[in-house]
Simulated assay, not measured.
Amino acid sequence: MSYDPPRPAGRLLLTPDDEEAPARTLRLRRLGLGERAEPGLDAFADRLAEVTGAPYAMVNFLYGERQFFAGLHTPTGGPAALGGKPELGRRLAREYGYCPHVVARRKALVLEDVRDYPRFAGNPVVEEYGIRSYLGAPLIDTAGMVLGTVSVADLTPRPWGRAGLETIKATAADLAGRLEHREAGGPPR
């Protein structure tokens, strides 16, 4: 038996372990997902941003120690600078943001004001990108594998409420079905 020392809590945030990462990586590769931007997923993120009124919307796939936004909506329509903050691009380290928590928990996460939650307030996206609210749900296929997430974020606190939660869960379930259809050789619906 090996001993892995605990990771330091740093800013009260521990990125959760992801035991499904190797299997997810294989599954995503079979589906041809998470290695490049996809216009269809960008359009999906655009619609999600419009429906929720959020300035940022993402379709995110996690590979080991990194995240990739295959679908991305920003206020300028692409990766954008956030008022002097670094550019929000398609790749992030796994310890950034809240999607790794959604994947590990296997359920939606609603953070109306991330500063209200000590565990999440210290995330690097708060200081580096100015993110103040988050709403995300897992993309779970019919075999029960979490492929990634669908999420939205804002630079101000947002009362997402039950309607926001139901919207993000429904859009995640819809997209998960469409992604699986790709494997069956059919065109994306």
Results as ranks from 00 to 15, higher is better:
residue 2 S to V: 13
residue 3 Y to P: 00
residue 5 P to K: 10
residue 5 P to D: 09
residue 6 P to S: 09
residue 8 P to A: 04
residue 14 L to Y: 00
residue 14 L to T: 14
residue 15 T to P: 01
residue 17 D to K: 08
residue 19 E to F: 12
residue 23 A to Q: 15
residue 29 R to N: 14
residue 33 L to W: 04
residue 33 L to S: 05
residue 35 E to W: 02
residue 35 E to H: 09
residue 36 R to I: 03
residue 40 G to V: 08
residue 41 L to F: 11
residue 42 D to H: 02
residue 46 D to G: 10
residue 47 R to P: 01
residue 48 L to T: 11
residue 49 A to M: 06
residue 50 E to D: 14
residue 52 T to W: 03
residue 58 M to H: 13
residue 58 M to Y: 14
residue 59 V to Q: 05
residue 64 G to C: 00
residue 68 F to A: 01
residue 71 G to Y: 08
residue 78 G to R: 15
residue 82 L to K: 01
residue 85 K to I: 00
residue 88 L to D: 05
residue 90 R to W: 07
residue 92 L to I: 04
residue 96 Y to E: 06
residue 97 G to A: 04
residue 104 A to T: 11
residue 104 A to V: 11
residue 105 R to D: 15
residue 105 R to H: 09
residue 106 R to G: 08
residue 110 V to N: 04
residue 110 V to R: 13
residue 111 L to M: 03
residue 112 E to L: 06
residue 120 F to D: 07
residue 123 N to A: 07
residue 129 Y to R: 05
residue 130 G to D: 10
residue 130 G to N: 10
residue 130 G to K: 09
residue 132 R to Y: 00
residue 133 S to Q: 02
residue 135 L to S: 06
residue 136 G to S: 11
residue 136 G to Q: 10
residue 139 L to T: 09
residue 144 G to W: 11
residue 145 M to C: 08
residue 147 L to C: 04
residue 149 T to A: 12
residue 150 V to A: 10
residue 153 A to Y: 01
residue 155 L to K: 04
residue 156 T to V: 14
residue 158 R to E: 07
residue 159 P to V: 12
residue 159 P to S: 13
residue 160 W to Y: 14
residue 164 G to N: 02
residue 165 L to D: 03
residue 166 E to N: 06
residue 169 K to W: 00
residue 171 T to G: 00
residue 173 A to M: 05
residue 173 A to P: 00
residue 175 L to Q: 03
residue 177 G to S: 06
residue 178 R to P: 01
residue 179 L to D: 07
residue 184 A to E: 12
residue 185 G to H: 05
residue 185 G to M: 03
residue 186 G to F: 13
residue 189 R to I: 12
